Amino acid sequence: MAFNMNHLELQPQLGSQLSKGIPPRKKSSKGYLAIAALALILGSGYAMTALFDATSSDHVPASTKSRLATEFAQAKPFALTPVPAGEVDIALDSMKLSADQRQALKSSLTFRLGDADATSSLAWIELWDFAAQDGDIVHISSAGYEVDYPILNVPNKLAIPVDATLSVTIRGVHDGGGGITLGLRSGAAGISMPVIEPGQTLIVPVTF
């Protein structure tokens, strides 16, 4: 799954009405409705533009960018929360798979016994934009699974498969301005990724 005018017309026969001494009809309320509709359309367009224009883009100081890059380079493998066996179907629903892809992945899952119940080789992750919500998009790939994911200020949860490489690849796809600002969390563990540029790839070491 390789993870966006009405116009006003003159009233007909207005001239002939005047020549016959018949007072012209008042402007139709339809005309006012058309004007109101046009104003609403223009206002909505302005609102959408304001939501994603340059004033809403990320403004991360250079010192913060440097700190995030250093912390990421020195970080230990990111601890993932395994998907319990009882939540596998819910996890697969979050992955936006076709029916064939879903069945193939479900058949390939491995399970192991933990301290409580069996857990799968799927892990829960949450993604969000830690700065301005400006249309940033990232590409997530892990164990053959790939998805383009728009990130919002509200964390979104999805499942990813994990294989023996114990790594997740994140690539920048679209920058709404100022760099792609991605937060990543699994269970209680969370990090702010380095600010990513479109086309830039980061490999995140993970562990269960």
Rank of each mutant, 00 (worst) to 15 (best):
G45E: 08
H59L: 12
A36T: 10
S98H: 00
T70L: 07
L68F: 05
T55K: 15
S63C: 01
G15L: 15
G21N: 08
F52Y: 14
T81K: 09
S29P: 12
G86N: 10
K76N: 10
Q17S: 14
P82A: 03
A99F: 03
E71N: 14
D100H: 00
A39P: 02
D93C: 00
T49N: 10
Q17Y: 12
A37W: 08
T70G: 04
H59D: 13
S94T: 12
Y46R: 09
K20G: 11
I41G: 05
Y46F: 14
M48C: 08
I35C: 07
T64N: 05
D89P: 01
L80R: 04
S29D: 13
K76M: 05
G31T: 07
T64C: 00
V60I: 15
G31K: 14
P77E: 06
Q17P: 00
A62V: 14
D53Q: 04
A39R: 04
V88P: 02
R67W: 03
D100M: 03
S44W: 02
A39Q: 04
F78V: 04
H59C: 10
S57H: 07
A47E: 06
R25S: 13
G31W: 11
A37Q: 09
G43L: 05
I22F: 09
L80W: 03
D89K: 03
A75Y: 00
D53P: 03
R102C: 00
L51K: 15
A36D: 03
D53H: 10
G43D: 01
K27R: 14
Y46W: 10
E71D: 12
S57F: 05
V83F: 05
K65I: 07
Q17L: 15
L18E: 12
G21V: 04
Y32S: 14
L42T: 09
G15E: 13
A79L: 06
S19V: 14
Q74I: 02
S19H: 13
L97R: 06
L38V: 07
S28D: 15
Q74C: 02
L38C: 08
P77D: 01
P24T: 06
S28N: 07
I90D: 09
M48Q: 13
T81A: 08
A69S: 08
F72L: 03
D100A: 08
S16W: 13
L51A: 14
S56K: 15
T81D: 09
D93W: 01
Q101N: 11
Q17N: 05
L38K: 06
S19N: 07
A75T: 01
F52C: 03
M48I: 13
L33Q: 13
G31F: 07
E87W: 06
E71V: 11
K20F: 09
T64E: 15
E71K: 10
P24L: 10
A91H: 01
L80Q: 02
M48G: 11
E87L: 08
G45K: 04
